[in-house]
């Protein structure tokens, strides 16, 4: 393994999250009951997605000032892994919604907005694959990636708060404390966010290395 220490740290954190997430006491709330534990698994998917998309944004900007194939690789693979996390977040959210809100898809503003932002990011991949020339492809998709990020932020963080939403922290009530997080839950939730995000970064690192190798191989022959 390359850079093994943070990977071992990731594994340890997530083992703790899985074990602690099931066994540590949680507040007894109506409707939610034990599903409150989804906070350790569903919510970190979105945190991870946003952090990984942010990495992609940074590298897209980097690419525009310093156009190297490596910068482009990081940007693409960040989008790829971000989309994976986004879809996992969407699917787990639907499962959770069915049994607490009563519907798989209730047209909740945050559900709609996150689906739209995933579509915007999927369009990034379509756009990339529609171009053959490497530099042109990298430059145009870097610009598009910046737009995609700029569209995602209001979709996820601003618009859902302007209307009523079933999600906590919405309906003009932003902030973190509305999660009814007690001390015990924070003890698992924060490591969960860090752990799942690092797992995504691990997958991303592998994909970047593979992409760079592929590129080198193509250009030598």
């Amino acid at each position: 393994m390359k850079n093994p220490w943070w990977k071992i740290f990731t594994i340890a954190l997530l083992l703790y999250v899985i074990i602690g997430g099931f066994l540590i006491e949680t507040p007894k709330l109506p409707i939610l009951h034990e599903t409150i534990r989804n906070l350790y698994f569903h919510v970190p998917m979105w945190f991870g997605m946003i952090i990984i998309f942010t990495v992609g944004l940074v590298y897209s900007i980097k690419y525009l000032s310093n156009p190297t194939q490596e910068n482009d690789s990081v940007a693409v693979e960040a989008v790829n892994v971000g989309i994976l996390f986004g879809f996992l977040g969407l699917i787990t959210g639907m499962q959770w919604a069915q049994f607490t809100w009563g519907e798989w898809w209730s047209g909740d503003p945050k559900q709609n907005a996150s689906a739209i932002s995933l579509l915007i990011y999927l369009a990034y991949l379509v756009l990339r694959n529609s171009m053959d020339e490497d530099q042109k492809r990298a430059r145009i998709s870097a610009v598009y990636n910046i737009f995609a990020y700029a569209a995602m932020i209001p979709l996820l963080f601003v618009l859902p708060r302007l209307t009523d939403s079933l999600h906590p922290g919405s309906g003009g009530n932003p902030g973190f404390n509305v999660y009814d997080l007690d001390g015990g839950m924070r003890l698992v939730f924060y490591p969960a966010v860090i752990g799942w995000t690092l797992l995504g970064i691990w997958i991303m690192e592998l994909r970047i290395r593979l992409r760079n190798l592929n590129f080198k191989y193509l250009y030598r022959n």
Binding site: M1, K2, K7, W202, I203, L206, R209, L210
Partner: peptide
């Protein structure tokens, strides 16, 4: 993932 990491 570890096996993939090694192979890469």
């Amino acid at each position: 993932l570890m096996v993939l990491d090694k192979r890469i």
